[in-house]
Design a protein around this nucleic acid. Structure first.
Lengths: 231, 231
DNA sequence: GTCTATAACGGGATAGAC
DNA sequence: GTCTATCCCGTTATAGAC
């Protein structure tokens, strides 16, 4: 966020001719808030479109229209389409990885996993677009955001691998391969976001349906926990 | 395939001026084989590119280059880009759904599920591009192949739902929700194809590594079977 | 900061020679 | 059947008025 804003701030310095002494700090802060708000709106529109139609399937014009700004104006806030896309991914990465980050060796593994599934299903229900965006990006080999994404993932996963290993050493978990357990949790929970179109087509329901949400959560917890708690 | 070929055959009739009586049946058959072969090469190139870069991220030019034909020539075999894409999906649908189709009420459910996981992992190892192609298509709401794809899926899934229900009625399976079991198997096995880039980035291995393949298979079977066999 | 106009480019599809 | 040349459109990005 900080980095992404550097540019707009630089441009603003050039573009708005100041009287001697410049505007008050309050005025500057207000302007900055308006700038941030507009960036937020544009990023929101970009998220919806990129996650549905992909990077190449979405035009800057479409994003501008959805965000209710002109294309020229959009390209004042983001240097080009690539930067808009990268900003979007960078901003969402932290929140997208949050549920896994919560894993802690002090927790009971069953609680931790139940909690993870719950959090991830809520995210899949409320923010399916984010999930789809990362799905698309990773599936295509992360061509744009690339190394940054994988490097972040790797740091987190290495960290959580040791947590799972501790649980196993303490006899609290069956000897599963940590990587596969993590992939397993990712795959099953994200499925309901990434393939919501298919899930809805086949079952007629989405995670927004209370009963369906509970059913998914129970099914996943039952299967996973039965398979990984010490026998 | 039959439908897709109608057009080329029509065009061939128009394009190649025949002497009275026309070419021998043997000659016609040979030509047809060459036509089929060329279509196959083009479809193969299209599969690799579409599954990696998506429909909009791939140009007809790139496909032509990879298939070693000119763009003009490619568009002689496929009316346009959309038709090429739809032909590809239609042709792969049957083989892609084959592993699930094998589910049979006479089988032991543990055997059936072990067999499914094995088949699907082999497919994920040997034909990851097909898996990614369907993943992309379904994730984007199946805009092009659309209703045809969902209709096919629905027929198959409804069929297998009753198989699973029978297993449960016979006490051979814990009372799982059939849909969720199916989603579960899809999600976990396809993960290794669709996210192979991520899997490799994090573990340093792919399904082509013998030991890794066995590890994945064992992990999946252990977890799933422990969770769904009658307790 | 915001808009319109337009330059510059790439892609899909067709025409027509061979 | 195959190729090259070309048309035409949509798209990105910039220039410049306000």
């Amino acid at each position: 966020m900080a980095k992404a804003n550097d540019k707009s701030r630089d441009d603003a310095d050039l573009a708005s001719p100041r009287k001697r002494g410049g505007p008050s700090e309050a005025t500057q802060a207000r302007r900055q808030r308006q700038v941030d708000e507009k960036r937020r709106v544009i990023l929101g529109a970009a998220l919806e479109l990129f996650s549905t139609f992909g990077f190449h399937g979405t035009s800057v014009d479409q994003i501008a229209e959805r965000a209710d700004v002109s294309k020229g104006n959009l390209l004042y806030y983001f240097r080009n389409k690539d930067e808009l896309y990268a900003s979007l991914l960078r901003e969402l990465l932290v929140v997208w990885l949050a549920p896994l980050r919560a894993f802690d060796p002090a927790q009971d593994p069953a609680d931790a996993i139940r909690g993870y599934i719950h959090q991830k299903l809520i995210a899949s229900r409320d923010n399916p677009a984010e999930s789809r965006l990362f799905c698309l990006e990773i599936m295509q080999g992360a061509p744009i955001f690339g190394d940054e994404l994988i490097a972040n993932l790797k740091r987190l996963v290495d960290d959580k691998r040791t947590v799972i290993e501790q649980w196993i050493a303490q006899g609290k978990l069956a000897p599963v391969t940590p990587h596969h357990l993590i992939f397993f949790l990712w795959a099953t929970t994200q499925h309901y976001a990434d393939f919501s179109f298919q899930v809805e087509g086949l079952t007629g329901k989405t995670l927004r349906n209370r009963a369906f949400f509970a059913e998914v959560e129970r099914s996943l917890c039952d299967i996973v926990l039965a398979g990984i708690l010490p026998h």
